[in-house]
Structure formats: structure tokens, C-alpha cells
Design a protein around this nucleic acid. Sequence first.
DNA 1: TAGGGTGGTGTAGTCAATACACTAAGTATC
DNA 2: GATACTTAGTGTATTGACTACACCACCCTA
Lengths: 227, 227
Amino acid sequence: MFEYEFPRPAVAADIAAFALDNGKLKILLVRRGVEPFLGEWALPGGFVLEDETIEACAARELREETGVDGESLIQFGIYSEPGRDPRKWIISIAYVTAVHLAQVVLKSGTDAAAAEWFSVDQLPAVLAFDHHDIIKDAIEALRNNALLLERQRRDVPVLAFRLLGETFSLSALQAAVEVIVGNERDKRNFRKQVVEHWLEPTGTVSTGRHRPALNYRLRPKDPGLHE
Amino acid sequence: MFEYEFPRPAVAADIAAFALDNGKLKILLVRRGVEPFLGEWALPGGFVLEDETIEACAARELREETGVDGESLIQFGIYSEPGRDPRKWIISIAYVTAVHLAQVVLKSGTDAAAAEWFSVDQLPAVLAFDHHDIIKDAIEALRNNALLLERQRRDVPVLAFRLLGETFSLSALQAAVEVIVGNERDKRNFRKQVVEHWLEPTGTVSTGRHRPALNYRLRPKDPGLHE
DNA sequence: TAGGGTGGTGTAGTCAATACACTAAGTATC
DNA sequence: GATACTTAGTGTATTGACTACACCACCCTA
């Protein structure tokens, strides 16, 4: 047991991990194995340990749950409403990230705690805690990140790229962005923007059912070329 | 005493409160009355209580310290490095705000714990914990907020306004923004932007040593006029 | 009443964002 | 093997936003 002079909250890192599955935007949820909300779906997450930062905790949880390295975790919210957990005093720090579905190995196989990808427009009716709110905010954070793709800004909007693999066609990228932001982009303008600002061609082509498309990857970093 | 099954961190809200004093940008610091860092300067702040959100805690601390209502507290950082407090496990949530110096009544008078405004370019050499880092981030957050003034965005960049009183002249506002962002703005463009997007004239004039200036106030809210 | 100092205004040029339609290349079908 | 189908790929003209820039107005003081 651990004793303190004043009450202290438990601090959790919760993760909204998005992936693209057959053109649908999905979010990872896990079924809770303990009270409260036993058996209900919740965002993956866990309590922060004393020897790690909160971000490191989020990265660890993401790795444990999906096998994906926890880079590009973006903190977007803090949830501290009293009573958000009916039993304990818990403060949640929420992170959003995106993963390439093909690289994910869900822990659910080895564990009783099931994990599943849910379409963002077909979430379970009941979620643990205030996770409905958190997911709503997470989708907005993801959307804002993707919208930066076509605006020339300093920080790289990595989330849309991470939905795809290491390399991808421009059409795939555009489709991903359109799913995220919820409306269509102009093909020519989109390509101009992203190729100029973020991408480099790999030289390979992705052969599909029709004309092959050039592949691109995220440019390592723009060392102030035109600045 | 309070007992928990697992270790828990203490969670603090720390506040970077800025004010404008004679054209200098200042930040409020308090002298610590307890170990660790007893007698050193630190950002005002305090531990979150079980029946309040972290933001409410920040608002409460700000009110206690300055008498100013804690609206417009903007959360900009989370500090959770292990060992940032040499004794206890403490996670800090950092907020930035701005206040009008004339409305401030520092608590320092009634209390042994001194509070003082420091020029942001003449900070004490030694600060408690990682508060040097936090202040650096706070200044950047303040700057980013002020830069939004001249860009047409959705959320109102309130901080620059709150440095001034309820009403102010355009020159005063421009001077405030220039102090914050650190470079000069074009007078005509600045006025066009802020008047169109954010301000309304009060009808009064501020009489100074020379030609009186029209006063403006922050427009309550733009109900989607031109949208 | 003259001069100093701050308050206040409009326009032209540049650059970024937008809107828009056809050809190219490979696959499947007949 | 020719044709139809599907996706990949490209340029320009227009619009709107941001930038740069100089003078007169008004009040106070001497």
C-alpha cells in the first residue's frame, strides 16, 4: 500500500488509435476486464508509472496493445471531471495516433481482454467512462491534423501518413485524407500541395487493377530548402 | 493519511500569468514557502483537489493569487518527467493566461509568500523545478495566441486583449501585440484586421497627452455574420 | 499660433488558394 | 487483338488574402 498526506488522483494515459480498414476509418477499443464498466468497451490505456512520462506510458500501452511503436502520439485532451470514474479519482490524459492496419498485431489473441476495431460511425452504444466524449475530441484532433496537410505549416501532420504504410500512392493518401476530413479534395491541388511540401517519390510503382501509380514516401525532413 | 494500492502522483496546476507593465511583458512568480526549493521563485500553482477539474484548480489558484477571475486559462503543456520534483512524484498541468495589471491585487501583501512580477527577459537565475522550461513554453503559447489576431481563425485569441483593460485604443493593442510577438506590425494592416474580425468601437475616447484615440472593446461574439 | 506627437486612413502589387477538363496507361472483356 | 473501362497524372486562369507603403487630422504645449 502507498500512503500520502493528501488525496491523489490516479493518472491514466488513454489512446485513440485510428486505422484505415477498407476505406473505413476505425478506432481501437478494448473490452474492460475489471470493474467499473466490466465488459464494456473502452479506449485502450493504463495508469502512469512513477518512472515514465505520461507520453511514454501512452507509447507503452499502444505497443502492448497493437505491437506498433508509439511514435507520433499527439496529446489532445485532459479529462478531470470529478466523478468521471464512479469509484476512483482518475485523471485521463488523452492521446491520438494512427497506425497502418497491416502492421498491427492485436494483443487480443493472447489475452482474455478482447480488442477490436470499430467504425467511427458505428461505435458501441455504451462506452466506459466519458470515452464517448474523448473519442469525439479525438476525431476532431485527427481531422485538424489532416487538414494541415494542404496548408504549409511548420510541424508535419503525420497522422494521415501513418494510416498508410511506409510508401503509398497519391490516390491512397487523398482517399485517406478525404475519409478523415469528411469531404472531397481537388485532385490536382491536393497533389501539388502534398508533393511540394511533404513527399518524395520512391521510384517504385504500386500495381493495381488499372494503371500503376507512382509511390511516394514522407520526405525525411525539409532542411529549410526554400526558406 | 490516504492509502492506495498503487503509487499515485500529485497533480498540480501551474499558471503562467502575464501582464503588461509600462510596455514590458511580465510574468507572475511567487517565492516558495516550503521545501523543496524553499525561498526560490516559482510559477504560482497548487495541487488539484478531488472535487474540481484541473482547469478549475488553475482558476482558483489564479484568483487566490491575483484576485482576477480565472477565465481564459489556456492549457498548453503537461510536465511529467520523472524526477522533476526531487522528493515527490508530481505531474504539472500548465496554463497560460493574461491579466490587466490594474485589476490585480496581489495576495503577497497579506501573506508571507511574496509574489512579484518579473520581466520575461530578466527572470531570476534559479527557478524551482523545471519552471524555466515551462515559462519558455508559456511565452511561446502566448505568442502563438497573439499571432492569431491577424489571421482570420475561429477561436478568439483572447490573451492579448486580456493584457489590456475592458476598453483600449488600437495603438495600445498594437503595442501589446508587438511586445508579445517581438516584432513590429504594419499599423494600417493591423487595424484593418483586428477591427474587422474582433473589435467594436465603444464611442468613447481615451484622452492622452496628444490627439485622443477612439476606444474599442472585444466584440461579444460574431454570430456568423459573413459565413 | 506654430510645432510636435500621436491618431487615423486607402490603394496597388504580390502571392497563395481555388476551380476546372482532358490525356495516359494498364486491365478486363468480347 | 481491338475496344471499353478504370484509375493515374497534368496546367492555367481566376479569385481572394496578405503585404507594402505615405500622408493628413487632431489635440496639446509652448
